[in-house]
Design a protein around this nucleic acid. Structure first.
Length: 282
DNA sequence: CATATGTCCTGAGAGC
DNA sequence: TGCTCTCAGGACATAT
């Protein structure tokens, strides 16, 4: 978290910045460890100041801001990686001290683009189109979870011996799914998270695919999930609302909303919590 | 090659 | 009350 729905929501929220020019780039001084940026601030600044924001897109769990080019060919891209606790915002960050990078804009209504990150695991990169392909091309990042077909999904994961829950988190195989949505998707699909991928037949891959589209689209409509730690926000006082729709995530010990009988169980897979209903998921 | 594990980072909450 | 400890997990480096 933030996963695909939260990052998609961030992209939509910052899209009013399209058409603005970047006037300045600031890294607020802070008691905290600085986040990783590349290239170094001075080079980053030299390359973005004066550039116009042409578009905002999502690449898996990353926000991509496309800039115009000073000369003719294609411009640079700013890649925001929120990782665990990051947000890309136009205004109103949850706290001032965790604002890591400020792009001041020329817009009348949109004054700035902020990268906020509580834990500081996030990364911001400026890359040429060529470098973007090298660092985040199809050999690094699988097809987007919202674009993939059921056939491609089973082709990319079906031979793996790994548990389906673990495999769904592999961004090289499939981009956009994280720990929270992997559990929710498998619950809706009625599939046990520890099932090895290579034991799943085509009908079950279709179920996973359908559940994945359903959960992700519904989560986007709810503007993502804000968990008990409250980190994810659309703005300071605007949490997402998909958490009220969670059927298993962080519900260990509570009754399953589907069968009403079994209790939701928490297990650990690959050092991450997995939640599931032992009655509904087999 | 595929798969598994360790690391980064901060703040919240538990336990004493 | 204030200290120490554990935990959360996305992506990547390193190990098996």
């Amino acid at each position: 978290m933030p996963e695909l729905p939260e990052v998609e929501t961030m992209c939509r929220c910052i899209r009013p910045a399209v058409g603005s020019r970047i006037r300045a780039l600031k890294q607020p001084r802070s008691r905290l460890q600085p986040i990783k940026i590349a290239p170094r601030l001075s080079d980053f600044r030299r390359r973005v100041v004066g550039r116009k924001i042409l578009s905002v897109t999502r690449l898996g769990k990353r926000v991509v801001v496309v800039l115009d080019a000073p000369e003719s060919d294609q411009g640079d891209r700013i890649i925001f990686e929120p990782r665990m606790s990051g947000l890309v915002l136009l205004a109103d960050p949850p706290s001032e001290e965790h604002v890591r990078l400020i792009f001041e804009l020329s817009g009348k209504r949109v004054r700035q683009l902020l990268f906020w990150n509580r834990r500081g695991l996030g990364v911001v990169r400026l890359v040429s189109p060529r470098l973007l392909v090298r660092q985040l091309g199809p050999h690094i990042l699988g097809p987007d979870a919202l674009d993939v077909t059921p056939e491609t999904l089973s082709e990319r994961l079906g031979a793996s011996r790994r548990a389906i829950k673990v495999a769904l988190l592999d961004q090289r195989a499939l981009a956009g799914i994280g720990n929270l949505y992997a559990s929710e998707i498998l619950h809706r699909a009625g599939i046990h998270p520890e099932t090895p991928c290579n034991q799943l037949r085509p009908a079950r891959w279709r179920k996973i695919h359908a559940a994945m589209q359903e959960v992700l689209e519904e989560a986007i409509r709810h503007q993502g999930s804000t968990l008990s730690d409250g980190t994810y926000r659309i703005a300071r006082n605007r949490p997402g609302s998909f958490q009220v729709c969670h059927r298993v995530y962080q519900r260990a010990g509570e009754p399953c909303l589907q069968c009403g009988k079994a209790e939701i169980v928490r297990v650990v897979q690959a050092q991450r919590s997995t939640f599931f209903c032992p009655a509904c998921q087999r």
